[in-house]
Design a protein around this nucleic acid. Structure first.
Lengths: 125, 125
DNA sequence: ATGCGTTATGATGAAAAATTCATATCGAAT
DNA sequence: ATTCGATATGAATTTTTCATCATAACGCAT
């Protein structure tokens, strides 16, 4: 049995943090933004890097700040270079934790998915 | 340290199947619909059960049929009872597989999430 | 042949989300 | 005080998504 109707199925997933009532706090989108900010040191630069609009990103970050109880970002405006945005230590720890979690989930998910596909293809058709 | 800024964080996730190019094929929403159809034996009844519109559901199912290579549903219309919709054997196997996968992921996710929170709360603050 | 309940579809409109455009604010350096 | 580049926001516009309404087609039983 070389091919099966399941062979081109892929698995995708999303994870996100919420508060006790289920309101979204931090998900993949904002996680990527925060990572880019950490690398670039600037919101504007991070947006260019990701190819998303400044306006949109700014809204997203505002909603994070509003919902999360503590600061992830340190913003400075003015100055000779116009300003900058960077992550607080806690922001860095949080995205690092998200990184690790993603790595773990990637492998676990795909492992289990492979098993699932095997089962689907073997016992039937 | 009784409380921490992380203590009311929760984790949520979504999984879905796609084709090789990332187009969504089957996710939680359609999975629930299919389950309801399997239980009710009718699209109309399934929609009422879930509290969603027939029109919407019908669109969703059409998109599944279009993208997936094989049939999940067996539809009959007319007849004394007006008609019916049921799952094919393969449809049943697929949603059963989704069930199992979800169960596995639920426990794995929460286990790893707990570890993550522990790490966040212990080494820092 | 007609009545019934279900599947099948088009058309319209409302609501929400995303994008675009414009503009204000800030502060170090000159 | 003026310049400059980045942050901060409002407002309008477009796009996308979702909900509603109306209506056709179907086929078994009577």
């Amino acid at each position: 049995m070389a091919t099966s109707k399941y062979e081109n199925l892929r698995l995708q997933y999303k994870i996100w943090f919420t508060d006790e009532t289920g309101n979204g706090l931090l998900g993949d989108g904002k996680w990527k933004i925060l990572k880019a900010i950490d690398e670039e040191g600037s919101l504007t630069a991070a947006c260019e890097k990701l190819g998303i609009t400044y306006r949109r990103t700014w809204n997203d970050l505002k909603s994070i700040e509003k919902r999360l109880g503590f600061a992830l970002l340190e913003k400075n405006r003015g100055g000779v270079d116009g300003g900058s945005t960077s992550l607080t230590v806690e922001g860095q720890r949080l995205i690092r934790a998200f990184d690790i979690f993603h790595e773990q989930m990637d492998t676990i998910m795909q492992d289990h998915f492979r098993l699932l596909i095997n089962e689907l293809t073997s016992n039937g058709e």
